[in-house]
Write a protein that binds this DNA or RNA. Structure first.
Length: 95
DNA sequence: CGTATGACGTGCA
DNA sequence: GTGCACGCCATAC
């Protein structure tokens, strides 16, 4: 395969790519906290950046609505906090 | 390049 | 029980 490196990562850090990958891999009916996602991405101390990444990431393939705070509380959502809450309730994650 | 922010988390008063 | 302040990482401007 040719040589050199291919920039398969869209111009973003490896950490961002991992976070999006992990979030997109969350099964329906299950939620992960920002801390868990950051840990799964390889930076258990970067949950703060995870929120930033999701906030800037408008990728529909990333169910950021399955990512909640440590209290299982909804933080925010690039499409509307109400929408996130509705999606969680629909999946049975939220009462 | 450097600065400031951000969808947070935790501890302490 | 509640509120305030600090710390941490990465991104974007």
């Amino acid at each position: 395969m040719t040589s050199s490196k291919q920039q398969v990562v869209s111009s973003k850090g490896e950490f961002t790519y991992s976070v999006l990958s992990v979030v997109s891999g969350i099964p329906v009916g299950h939620v992960m906290t920002y801390r868990e996602v950051a840990a799964a991405a390889g930076r258990p101390r970067a949950w703060r950046a995870v929120g930033n990444i999701l906030h800037k990431n408008y990728d529909p393939a990333v169910p950021c609505h399955r990512v909640v705070g440590s209290d299982g509380k909804i933080g925010g959502y690039n499409r509307g906090k109400g929408m996130k809450r509705k999606l969680l309730a629909k999946e049975g994650v939220l009462a």
